[in-house]
């Protein structure tokens, strides 16, 4: 038996490079200039129609992205940063463009973590059964 995964098929036809540029610009606008949101949304809708991309699905993914961004800004934990990166991909924003969004990095020292640590631990002193963010082996499922 196989699973008919909706996770894989939404908007899987992809978006053109132009479309990806526009989505990125849209996200950048929302992040930096939320006042222009209405106008940007209208343009995004028009782009989607022109490119035959499912606007409602894209909008849903973008809403999740912005909600996650809000949650991330409150905690700045590495695990939420990873979730944000993954959600960006669902919005056709690759790692390179994600970096250009200049979202403040998580509260940890990147080089040490990258070499030695996995998901969501900023400090050896937090390796106890009380801390909140810890997902052990998150890298095994891409987190």
């Amino acid at each position: 038996m196989s699973i008919n995964s909706d996770f894989k098929k939404t908007n899987s036809s992809g978006a053109s490079i132009t479309m990806q540029h526009y989505i990125f610009a849209f996200v950048q606008d929302v992040v930096n200039q939320p006042d222009n949101l209405k106008r940007s949304e209208q343009w995004l809708k028009e782009y989607c129609e022109k490119e035959n991309v499912n606007y409602f699905e894209l909008n849903r993914q973008l809403s999740s992205f912005f909600e996650l961004l809000e949650a991330y800004r409150k905690t700045k934990t590495l695990v939420l940063y990873r979730f944000l990166q993954l959600q960006a991909q669902a919005c056709f924003i690759d790692e390179e463009r994600f970096a250009l969004l200049r979202i403040q990095p998580a509260n940890y020292e990147f080089p040490r973590i990258a070499a030695d640590m996995g998901t969501s631990c900023s400090d050896k002193n937090t390796i106890t059964s009380s801390h909140n963010g810890g997902l052990v082996g998150g890298h095994l499922i891409g987190l």
């Binding site: 695990v79 059964s129 009380s130 963010g133 810890g134 997902l135 052990v136 082996g137 890298h139 095994l140």
Partner: peptide, 12 residues
């Protein structure tokens, strides 16, 4: 990151 065998939700 050398852990290849365990996923634990823990405080997550």
């Amino acid at each position: 990151l050398l852990n290849s065998s365990v996923i634990h939700l823990w405080g997550f």
